[in-house]
């Protein structure tokens, strides 16, 4: 019993990880574009930061 449970947990983790490897592989094929998308999203946040007041930030 004690040996089976760790195996199950690790197997579950690894199963998720294998999906992540595939996903990562795809991501890296378009890495520059995907990464630049993050900049576009963050630019919105950036505006929030520059406005500084918390109340305005919360409306964004």
């Amino acid at each position: 019993m004690m040996k089976i449970i760790p195996k199950l947990i690790y197997s579950l983790n690894i199963k998720k990880g294998k999906k992540k490897i595939k996903h990562f592989d795809e991501l890296t094929k378009n890495a520059p574009e995907i990464n630049k998308q993050l900049r576009t999203i963050k630019k919105v946040c950036l505006f929030r930061l520059m406005t500084t007041t918390s109340s305005i930030l919360k409306k964004c």
């Binding site: 195996k7 690790y10 690894i14 990880g17 294998k18 992540k20 490897i21």
Partner: peptide, 24 residues
């Protein structure tokens, strides 16, 4: 969580295959 645990353990598992018996 996704990278440091799931992804990394999958990389190790693929590299080691049956050599890693997955004990504690």
């Amino acid at each position: 969580r996704e990278y440091a645990t799931q992804y990394s353990f999958a990389v190790i598992s693929e590299a080691l295959g049956e050599k890693w018996k997955k004990g504690r």
